[in-house]
């Protein structure tokens, strides 16, 4: 096992587990120091290209899952999955879920009184291609209030979940929109300090927009990369 390639550790852009402005972290974050460990075969492996057997066939168009078209502004969300050495991460699962155009989730526990859209679920998943590209069609989600503090509103966001090549590269994040002033007053986004917070903000990409049909937002996702020098005992 000497010379087993190691993935880089999380960088300074990662949030702490405890961030009291996001109140739910207080009772749900460890107080003991994390135990530092080398990555073993367990951590540098992950499920191979077996996504069909796990998450099932891809769902890339979230606007055609029901009888009618969902309400709201149609958007294209696309980008590349890369590692931090800027190399593509191919053949990896990208899962997304989001609220509808009014900011309401199709979830029994979401009791905000914005309307449910019977034509919108808001969940999908695709596999990145050989160059790490992925692409979804969806509608732009709305902002919504939540109970963290008085007059708290989440900025519009799309949840992303990626496995990458290994247990070590697992990532769950949220994509934000570039024209949203709520980002800078949101405790969850603010758990990530600037300038790293802006890594979660997508870019309006007019070149990928389909004229008279949909605006496009580019969101590249960067996973932990393999260290250039193998770990030695």
């Amino acid at each position: 096992m000497n010379g087993l390639l190691q993935f880089a550790r999380e960088d300074r852009g990662f949030p702490p587990s405890l961030f009291p402005d996001y109140r739910a972290t207080v009772a749900r974050s460890p107080r003991e120091a994390l135990v530092h460990m080398p990555q073993t075969l367990t951590e540098v492996t992950g499920p191979g290209p077996v996504w069909d057997k796990l998450m099932g066939p891809a769902i890339h168009d979230l606007t055609t899952q029901h009888k009618g078209a969902p309400l709201g502004q149609r958007i294209i969300v696309f980008g590349r999955v890369l590692d931090e050495n800027a190399r593509p991460v191919p053949n990896t699962i990208v899962e997304v879920w989001q609220a509808n155009a009014a900011g309401r989730y199709i979830h029994r526990k979401d009791d905000w009184d914005a309307p449910i859209d019977p034509n919108f679920t808001g969940a999908g998943h695709v596999i990145s291609d050989a160059e790490g590209n992925y692409r979804f069609i969806s509608i732009r989600p709305g902002a919504y209030p939540w109970g963290n503090h008085k007059n708290a509103w989440r900025p519009a966001h799309i949840h992303f979940s990626l496995l990458g090549p290994a247990f070590a590269t697992r990532l769950v994040t949220q994509m934000y929109f570039p024209d949203d002033p709520l980002i800078d007053i949101d405790p969850i986004a603010n758990a990530v300090p600037l300038p790293y917070r802006d890594r979660m903000v997508s870019q309006l990409d007019m070149a990928t927009t389909t004229p008279n049909w949909a605006l496009a937002y580019r969101f590249d996702i960067v996973l932990r990369g393999k260290n250039q020098t193998p770990f030695e005992e």
């Binding site: 899962e95 526990k109 769950v172 903000v201």
Partner: peptide, 23 residues
């Protein structure tokens, strides 16, 4: 935003939130 080359690096983690069950 995300495309600024000065910012290139690991995408930070965020919570799954309470509504991941349909996703």
């Amino acid at each position: 935003d995300n495309q600024n080359p000065d910012l290139f690096g690991q995408t930070p983690s965020q919570t799954v939130g309470p509504y991941f069950h349909y996703g």
